[in-house]
Every structure is written in structure tokens, then in C-alpha cells.
């Protein structure tokens, strides 16, 4: 008889003997079966869990690879755009030099702690604590932003503290433009807290909900390109201008720090007669 057949015979004999033994103690055999079955079930469940994780891992990996490809593609586009922008900047520098064009001065940002905010009452303002050692500077009318976008401008200073008129205040007006079309208008606060209006945009101009609104740099206070908000609705019921509502980019309910721009505004004497904007 071959060794394989002997091995089969051995297994059969052992199985029969085990069956005989368990038949002599059925209750205990059931306990033992349960004792063996429970870990076996756990093992099967763990194996299924592992298989599920592996499957999910593969899916996630496929998704990540796809996203990675998209991001790499986007990065290449942005690198190309950046290179083009650098080239354009260089070109502007070269062209502006013989023309005597004065480029806007570089600005420095100073981090300030927000110690008071009121964005619901009739006077919507915040108070920030200025960095120490800067009390002697001329802070009034300087722009104040957060990492998200425009917050307002400094209206008064007392010691180390400065009051900031929020962009949502009814008295606030900021020279703004729609980023997509570069069409300019004036952003003002409204009666409704947390809603801005973009005024003086003619009905002929293409404005769509979702358009980004940024500072236009035409009010003598705010530099160009600071995000203000996003267009939420456009109504053309007026005769000449759109009624545009803008949601502010900055969440006024979660203010903790702000940046005060160390950037001299256009002198008041020059701005005389132009107080509709930037005041």
C-alpha cells in the first residue's frame, strides 16, 4: 500500500475515533464544537474585514492616483502660468522704467490680536491690539485683512489699540471689482448683517453668482486684489445698475487674529473731494 493511502487510512481512523469519543460525551462535544467554532467565525470575519480593507485600499489608491495625475496636470498648468506671469512682470518692469511708471509700494503685514468684534449692531467694528513699539506710527486708514480676505480699515487708534471699521458696516465703502471681468464698483455694507452689496455695476455688464469680488485698488486705501467676497445674487430690476449681493469672504464670527498693512494710504489732502470711496 502506498504512503498516501496509508496517510488517508490514518486520517480516517483518527476521525472515526474522535467521532466515537465525542459521541460518548455529546454535551461536552457541543461545548468543544462551540469553542472551536467561535474563533473560526472570528477568523472568517477578520479575513473578510482584511479583504474589505484591501479592496477599499485599492479603490482609494486608484482614486488617489487619479487625483495625483490631475494635480500634477494642474501643477504643470500653474507652473506654466507662473512662468508666463514672471515673464509679464519682467516685461512690465522693462517697459515701465523708461515711462517713469511708479509701481505700488511693497506692503508689510503686521499680525494683530483681535480683542473685540461687533458685527451685528449699528456700528460694525472690531478692536485689534497693535504690535508693541508701533504706537507712534500713523495707523489710521490702513487696511486690515485676515488670511481669508478683507476685514476693514483702521479708523482710530488709542495707545496700542486700534478700532477697525468692518467692511460690512453701513458707513464702509470699498473700491472693488469682479475678478472675472475686472469691472469695477463699490462694495458697501447693508442693513442685513453679513451681506454686502456691490453698487454701480451697469446692467450691461456680465455678472454671475459665484463671481469673486476683490479690491480694485481705486479708493486710495486698499491695495488691488484682496478678496472681499463672492457674488450670491444678481438682480437687474434697476434702470441703470445691477443689484448685486455679495457674501463676505471673511467669517466675522471666527475672528482671532488680523493683519494690519503697513502701507501708507494716499494723503487726505490729495483725496479731498473723493470721499465716496474708501471712507
Amino acid at each position: 500500500m502506498s504512503e498516501r493511502r496509508i496517510a488517508i487510512l490514518f486520517v480516517v481512523a483518527v476521525t472515526l475515533l474522535v467521532a466515537s469519543l465525542t459521541a460518548q460525551s455529546p454535551e461536552r462535544a457541543a461545548d468543544v464544537a462551540l469553542w472551536v467554532e467561535a474563533p473560526a467565525k472570528g477568523l472568517v470575519a477578520a479575513a473578510a474585514d482584511v479583504a474589505d480593507r484591501v479592496r477599499q485600499g485599492w479603490r482609494t489608491r486608484a482614486r488617489l492616483e487619479r487625483e495625483n495625475d490631475e494635480l500634477r496636470s494642474r501643477l504643470r498648468e500653474l507652473e506654466a502660468a507662473h512662468a508666463a506671469a514672471l515673464g509679464a512682470e519682467l516685461e512690465v518692469d522693462l517697459l515701465s522704467e523708461p515711462l517713469g511708471y511708479a509701481r505700488p509700494p511693497e506692503s508689510e503685514l503686521l499680525l494683530a490680536d483681535v480683542v473685540y468684534v461687533d458685527y451685528h449692531s449699528w456700528r460694525r467694528s472690531a478692536i485689534v491690539r497693535l504690535p508693541r513699539g508701533n504706537a507712534k506710527e500713523e495707523w489710521e486708514r490702513r487696511p486690515v485683512t485676515t488670511v481669508d480676505g478683507l476685514l476693514g480699515r483702521v479708523v482710530s487708534v488709542e495707545g496700542d489699540y486700534a478700532r477697525v471699521l468692518l467692511v460690512t458696516d453701513l458707513d464702509s465703502s470699498v473700491g472693488a471689482m469682479i475678478e472675472r471681468t475686472r469691472r469695477q464698483g463699490i462694495v458697501r455694507g447693508t442693513e442685513e448683517a453679513g451681506v454686502l452689496s456691490l453698487a454701480y455695476v451697469p446692467v450691461q455688464v456680465d455678472v454671475r453668482p459665484g463671481d469673486r469680488v476683490v479690491t480694485a485698488g481705486i479708493d486710495g486705501v486698499f491695495p488691488r486684489g484682496i478678496p472681499i467676497g463672492t457674488v450670491t445674487s444678481v438682480e437687474s430690476s434697476g434702470d441703470h445698475f445691477h443689484e448685486i449681493k455679495v457674501a463676505p469672504r471673511v467669517d466675522l464670527g471666527s475672528l482671532s487674529h488680523a493683519f494690519v498693512w503697513r502701507r501708507d494710504p494716499v494723503p487726505e489732502a490729495v483725496m479731498d473731494g473723493a470721499d465716496a470711496v474708501g471712507r
Binding site: F10, A13, V14, L17, V18, S20, L21, Q24, S25
Partner: peptide, 10 residues
């Protein structure tokens, strides 16, 4: 129990 030693000896 019958089969106990048989199993072990086998």
C-alpha cells in the same frame, strides 16, 4: 472512554 488510547496509540 472507548477509543481514547486507540486514538493516542494510532
Amino acid at each position: 472512554p472507548f477509543g481514547l488510547h486507540a486514538l493516542a496509540c494510532c
